[in-house]
């Protein structure tokens, strides 16, 4: 490839130890995510992949390691400067039901990030629009949801619809990076496929970078340019997606391949 690689996020030697666990949840994990790139992380439960996501989102403190986000120091930011840096990062989690406050209507949950930063207006929203409701309507259209859902409460939506709302919310601030932690694991097979397709389309049209985390190697392959394999808090293998069947694949990767190769 001839395009220059500009990292949007660069994490080095991340280590996280929980006092109640014998082994580190993360041990010396390093990764970079380039602009417009999708990096996939595959691992089973307990591999540390979700801990990694939470550390990158600064929801948990690190014991060791550094994170640079948009060429700026990120892991030590606090208060106002952390809030500023986090404007450029989005997240989608596994359980769409837990991601929406049951007491708020869809529009209020969806617009929360933009309500917090009234000066931000996503560039992909057509310009003459001013009004909050119109922006929300367009966001829902972007994720192919009927706009009548705006005034609904989360329990009236299906799992797939809720996940689309959280995706719409994640793209609303036009972040540079979206961290997707098992975004389809709790969905039915058909809505899983639809959500993956939506995520790919959004990545194309909005030039997003993704960190796509899943236990499903096939889904990770489908989404990602590069794949990191995690096990017991360590990155045991990493490779470009089109280099999946290389002789030097780690034996753990090979056994995963064996399972997912139907």
């Amino acid at each position: 490839m001839t395009t220059t690689f500009t990292p949007i996020l660069k994490a080095d030697h991340l280590t996280k130890i929980y006092s109640d666990r014998p082994t580190p949840a993360l041990s010396d994990v390093s990764l970079t995510i380039g602009k417009g790139e999708c990096v996939g992380i595959v691992g089973e439960s307990g591999s540390g992949k979700s801990t990694l996501a939470r550390c990158l989102l600064r929801l948990e403190s690190l014991d060791q390691g550094t994170i640079e986000f948009r060429q700026q120091l990120y892991h030590s930011l606090k208060g106002h400067s952390l809030r500023q840096a986090r404007q450029h990062i989005g997240a989608v989690f596994q359980h769409p039901t837990a991601a929406l406050n049951p007491k708020l209507t869809i529009i209020d949950s969806l617009m929360e990030p933009l309500d917090l930063q009234p000066s931000l207006r996503p560039s992909f929203i057509s310009q003459p629009i001013r009004n909050r409701e119109q922006i929300a309507t367009q966001l829902l259209e972007y994720v192919q949801l009927p706009t009548k859902l705006l005034s609904a409460y989360p329990h009236e939506l299906s799992g797939g619809q809720k996940q689309r709302v959280t995706i719409a919310r994640a793209i609303s601030t036009e972040p540079d990076l979206i961290i997707l932690d098992e975004p389809t694991a709790s969905l039915d097979v058909t809505s899983q496929a639809a959500v993956l397709k939506l995520l790919q389309e959004l990545q194309q049209s909005l030039h997003l970078s993704y960190l796509f985390i899943s236990h499903d190697l096939a889904a990770v392959y489908q989404m990602s340019d590069r794949i990191l394999v995690m096990r017991h808090g360590q990155v045991v293998d990493q490779f470009a997606s089109n280099d999946l069947y290389h002789e030097e694949r780690h034996e753990y990767t090979a056994s995963l391949l064996d399972v997912f190769l139907a």
């Binding site: 097979v189 058909t190 496929a193 993956l196 190697l217 096939a218 392959y221 489908q222 999946l244 190769l261």
Partner: peptide, 23 residues
């Protein structure tokens, strides 16, 4: 048909190599 096509799949080794060659 929809259910089967919804399942994420890995390409076979042969297909992937073919794809890479085309690229």
């Amino acid at each position: 048909v929809q259910l089967l096509s919804s399942i994420p799949k890995l390409p076979s080794r042969y297909r992937l190599e073919l794809q890479n060659k085309q690229v």
